[in-house]
Structure formats: structure tokens, C-alpha cells
């Protein structure tokens, strides 16, 4: 990479993000920068604050402090209409449970087309063609465009959720345990798909997971969280192979050999 692209501003720049639940800390003083084409993994055990951080960025939770600049604007203080517009055009959120991210009583095509229609698309034929294209891209047979997600396997539902989010060509994808609950072989397929999409679309992604294996294969950089704070961050393989913090060492040494 040359110096010119190296110096470009980050797509998302978070400083001092803090969320409290009463007296308890959800996440505290989190800083992170994310550039286009980059996947940032966030690992930590349950209660480490990784999901709270993601929820604050996505606007699902209101942060108590800090800033999150995206395109020069602080998304934490964005008025709700603008934040929701951002969420359905330029950002995508992939939920752990597909049923939280899909309309289960709407066909696959309708699910993929919703963001297009919300953005003003009014040509049925075009919407359908785009939906078919996206189903193929996430390796779902376009012939199943009129089937409902309830007729799909868990892995297919997750891929449909990704197609639904990416159809508007977002620049930032937030993923909460995207491979959680899936069989190992299905996980691998999903990871491969995500890597390809990140590369081809130049997406930036934040992936929250407790699965070290997932971040090793998916994330360029890694943040380790404990008790709401970032204890270590850096290149994924460096953090995992030469962990500097005691907690990271414990986390890495606790992974069962595959």
C-alpha cells in the first residue's frame, strides 16, 4: 500500500465510548479506528462489553459518553431519522440470530428488496433482478427467491441476512456473533463468503465474537475486551500468537485445539 492510501482518514473513528448500566460498566473509554476494506475483530467473554460496544455504535443502545465519527459526523449524537437512514443505506447489521435480522413471514426476495424499496425503488422487475443477483452472490439458489426464510437452514438464513444488509452497497457492516450457533462446516462457508464480499466491495466490518478461530480467519486486526475495557489491540495474529496481556494469554490458552 502506498503512502497516499495509508494516510487516508479512517471510515469510523471512536474515542472514549462509554456505556453504564446504572452503576455497572457496560463498556468504558473505548477507542478504535476502522478503515475501508478492513475487518476488526472484537473478542472477549460474555459480559466483556463487546456486544454493548457494538449496540452503541449501531444505535441500539444510547452511549453515555464518547464520540464515534463516521464521514465527519458523530453518529452517537445523530438525530434519529438520520441515524436510521444511515442504518438502512450505508451501514448493515448482521444479528447472531437470523430471526432478529429477517422478516420471517416475508419471502427471501422481499427481505432482500426491502432496503431498496425503503430507498425509493419502485420498479418490481428491477428489485427482483437485484434480489436474484444477491441471492446468487450469497450462494442461495435464486429459484428460492419466493420461499420464506423459515424454509431455509440456519446457514442459509444467515447468508440471506447478509444479502439483505449488503444490497444497498453499505460501507460499514457490524456483525454480532455472525457464525454463532452454526455447524463448523457452515461457519467456514460463511467466513469465506464474508471475506470475499469484504474484499470485492471494499467493506469495513466489525465482528464481535467469542470464537478465536473465527477472528483468526476473518479479522485483520483484533481488540480484546475485558470488564468493559480494551485490554489489548493489534494485528490479529500478533495478538493471538504473542499476547501481551495476562487476560489475552488466558483467553488464547483456553482455546481447545482443533
Amino acid at each position: 500500500m502506498n503512502a497516499e492510501t495509508m494516510s487516508e482518514a479512517p471510515l469510523l473513528s471512536v474515542r472514549g465510548l462509554t456505556k453504564r448500566y446504572g452503576g455497572r460498566i457496560g463498556c468504558a473509554e473505548v477507542d478504535l479506528d476502522l478503515w475501508p476494506g478492513e475487518v476488526l475483530g472484537i473478542v472477549g467473554e460474555s459480559g466483556s462489553g463487546k456486544s454493548t460496544l457494538l449496540a452503541c455504535l449501531a444505535g441500539h443502545l444510547e452511549a453515555d459518553g464518547g464520540t464515534a465519527r463516521y464521514d465527519g459526523r458523530d453518529v452517537l449524537t445523530l438525530p434519529e431519522p438520520e441515524r436510521r437512514r444511515l442504518a438502512r443505506t450505508d451501514w448493515a447489521f448482521v444479528h447472531q440470530h437470523a430471526r432478529d435480522g429477517l422478516r420471517m413471514n416475508v419471502s427471501a426476495g422481499g427481505n432482500v428488496g426491502e432496503r431498496l424499496m425503503a430507498g425509493g425503488a419502485r420498479h418490481y422487475g428491477d428489485i427482483r433482478a437485484t434480489a436474484e443477483d444477491w441471492l446468487a452472490r450469497v450462494e442461495i439458489d435464486p429459484a428460492r427467491i419466493d420461499d420464506r426464510p423459515s424454509q431455509f437452514s440456519g446457514g442459509m438464513q444467515q447468508r440471506l441476512q447478509i444479502a439483505r444488509g449488503l444490497v444497498t452497497g453499505p460501507r460499514l457492516v457490524l456483525m454480532d456473533e455472525p457464525t454463532g450457533g452454526l455447524d463448523v462446516s457452515v461457519q467456514a462457508r460463511l467466513l469465506d463468503l464474508l471475506r470475499g464480499l469484504v474484499r470485492r466491495m471494499g467493506l469495513a466490518a466489525i465482528v464481535v465474537t467469542h470464537d478465536i478461530g473465527v477472528v483468526r480467519l476473518l479479522a485483520d486486526r483484533l481488540m480484546v475486551m475485558k470488564d468493559g475495557r480494551v485490554v489489548e489491540a493489534g494485528l490479529t495474529d500478533r495478538v493471538l500468537d504473542d499476547p501481551q496481556h495476562g487476560y489475552t494469554q488466558l483467553l488464547v490458552s483456553s482455546v481447545l485445539p482443533t
Binding site: E80, P81, R84, R88, R103, V106, S107, G109, G110, G113, E114, R115, M117, A118, G119, R122, Y124, I127, R128, I145, D146
Partner: peptide, 22 residues
Amino acid sequence: RRMHALEEYGLMHVKLYEDIAR
């Protein structure tokens, strides 16, 4: 109510889309 407030009516067309698809 929030969808009305913010004029988020994409869902209405989803219903019509489903009609045509089916």
C-alpha cells in the same frame, strides 16, 4: 408510530412486492 414519524414506508411496498411475487 416511529415509521410513520420518519416516513419509513419501505415495508408497504414489501407487502405489494409479496403480492406480485406470489
